[in-house]
Design a protein around this nucleic acid. Structure first.
Lengths: 357, 357
DNA sequence: TGACAGAATTGGAACGTTCCAAATACTTAT
DNA sequence: ATAAGTATTTGGAACGTTCCAATTCTGTCA
């Protein structure tokens, strides 16, 4: 086992050519003679050469490290794991590798990992920002010409590309569906008001309510942590209302599950005594009892699109900030009570590819 | 916005010192005068200097890139997502970054990403190998002095460190528990037979069956994809058996969930009409309905331990191959029917000090 | 004042690649 | 056989850092 690294010079020597030629071979240049090429390749294989991207990258002055950074706020949430997988797919097949880090919603950690990634010379960054991330945090990156794509949560004020799902339309269709089932008082439960996503979903709720010819009541909007526990809390307050709602759209699926828990604790059966609709369509949604009616947003698709967008910008060399919102669709299952109240409308619950494997 | 990179030389010039001094500051050397240090630091901040690890790494001839590679076979499985988070935690706080890739069980892809990581100069690798990985695939890495830690699935024959959970003991305790509840025909469902993990779990099942004084029947072992869909398929076959089983231990939680789905599709209630036990204790296990009785393995803990092991080897410079198997414990919930059938026996899961950390 | 010891600083020379301009090797047409 | 091409090959000179040996700066002591 030779301890020393095999370099391009070693190859050159062994193959009886110059290092420049070897370099040409490495880059698949058409300038080099077929015979030479194969000889060099043979020698490389024989000596167990491994390319040193660091060195190459140094010479090529930035731009093409073939590394993209991926930063997510909660990898244990399967939503984001899926997203990372989507990114990895396209990034990998484009010959890049992904640097993935998890911030766990900590802005400090986010700052650290982004800095670290920068030191390593990433050629682009995909990030689902931690809560309360300052848009200015990514300023230096774009100033340095490193494309940034923000996903899932947008960052108002930052001049970067972003992909978010159509929160507004999603919420609207959820409300429309419930109204169509005859519900008059529909609550909006869960979520922290200090996020852009919350604003969008709330706006969608409001539009939906008004479009259905109902009145928008402030008291029916009850925020809470976007978690199962938060859902329990929110439904508690909703039930305590003088004029209690008969249905609710929830900030996300976690909240929706909590709402179901809370209902059962009060001897109310979700989907029967009270209609519940979630948002995200996490994997558990279809297996839960009752199966959750929810707005489906394909995280892996977002990952793929984000990666494509990023690669495009990397290749273009110029970062044209563009914003796309991906379509979502309501998946009607049981928790909204559609099954019994209005059998018609049931829209084909989607076949889930996730379980296919 | 200067387009050109700010280098150590620019800093030197601006601070009126030599590049060597700047380098010293960068490394926190005690040789440099306090005044100089702070001036240099100030200038660095002012000019927006970013350290170029590639260049540094080039000079420092290998060894210390501060990158660890993490390769998992299925990131969409929250088990592995958790594992990656565990790795990230310790790796990050040690000042490393993680290169994470997903192979999706493809050996080719695995080969690609490992090669790519090597080119990027990782200083160590943590891998949960894709099915049917050849132990020889990692030979070149260790020959080059790059520590490798294999997790979750072991790689017989490879001279690398590994961390696996105690699959045998886990399955045994699951079977013992079911037998204690009075079950006589217990099936083993799911998993691909060509993996070491499968062998271990099956061996544990067999030992458990025999230890309980029951007979081992080949027909009760039904393999399938280790996924939810696979579980549905497997329980279908099990139910079709002439002498149908009354309980099943499953290859993993995904299979177990599938088994529950399949049962319900046949109007059987898991935990009531049929006992189901999983393996892994993924996050969803406790929230599911019915809550899944399963063997808990703490993937995040494995990730952390694996990372620690790797860092130790990286720092030691020498890769002493060691193997540890982490303890597991049965978590009794609802899906096994323990609640009603035989409240007694509920076993005292093995307290594992190893997981204490 | 000179010598001496630290303390602090500094100019190259690497590291392994790519790029450039220039050199050499072949063809083909004259 | 020679000029003009075309196809290949090739020595440096970068890239941004760290390391080494050597230098300059302090102060102290005789």
């Amino acid at each position: 086992m030779t301890k020393a690294r095999v370099t391009v010079i070693d190859i050159a020597k062994a193959a009886g050519v110059s290092k420049s030629t070897v370099s040409l071979v490495l880059q698949g240049s058409s300038l080099v003679n077929e015979g030479t090429r194969s000889k060099v390749n043979a020698v490389m294989r024989e000596l167990g050469y491994v390319y040193n991207r660091g060195a190459a990258n140094l010479r090529q002055a930035g731009a093409k490290s073939r590394i993209v950074g991926v930063v997510v706020n909660d990898l244990t949430n399967s939503f984001f794991a899926e997203l990372a997988v989507g990114v990895d797919m396209v990034v990998q097949s484009a010959g890049f590798v992904q640097f993935l880090s998890n911030t766990g919603e900590s802005i400090d950690r986010q700052r650290e990992v982004v800095a670290s990634m920068r030191e390593h010379g990433i050629s682009g960054l995909i990030v689902s920002p931690a809560r309360a991330t300052d848009a200015a945090d990514f300023k230096p990156l774009v100033a340095a010409g490193i494309p940034v794509v923000v996903v899932v949560r947008n960052l108002p004020g930052a001049k970067v590309s972003s992909i978010v799902s159509d929160n507004r339309a999603g919420m609207m269709s959820a409300v429309r569906h419930l109204a169509g089932l005859g519900h008059k008082r529909i609550a909006f439960l869960g979520g922290f008001p200090d996020t852009a996503v919350f604003d969008d979903r709330l706006a969608g709720y409001r539009s939906g309510v008004e479009a259905a010819g109902l009145d928008y009541h402030e008291e029916l909007v009850i925020s809470s942590a976007p978690s199962r526990a938060g859902g329990v809390e929110a439904i508690g307050k909703a039930i305590a209302l003088a004029r209690r709602p008969t249905a609710a759209v929830c900030f996300n699926d976690a909240v929706a599950f909590g709402v179901c828990d809370g209902l059962r604790a009060r001897r109310l059966e979700p989907g029967v005594d009270f209609a519940v609709v979630g948002f995200d369509d996490v994997i558990e949604a279809q297996a839960a009892v009752p199966a959750l009616t929810t707005v489906s947003v394909d995280p892996q698709g977002i990952g793929r699109r984000g990666a494509q967008m990023l690669l495009k910008q990397i290749n273009a060399g110029k970062a044209e900030a563009e914003t796309v919102t991906t379509a979502v669709r309501l998946v009607v299952r049981e928790s909204c009570g559609a099954g019994r109240a209005a059998p018609a409308r049931t829209g084909k619950s989607v076949k889930s590819k996730q379980d296919a494997e």
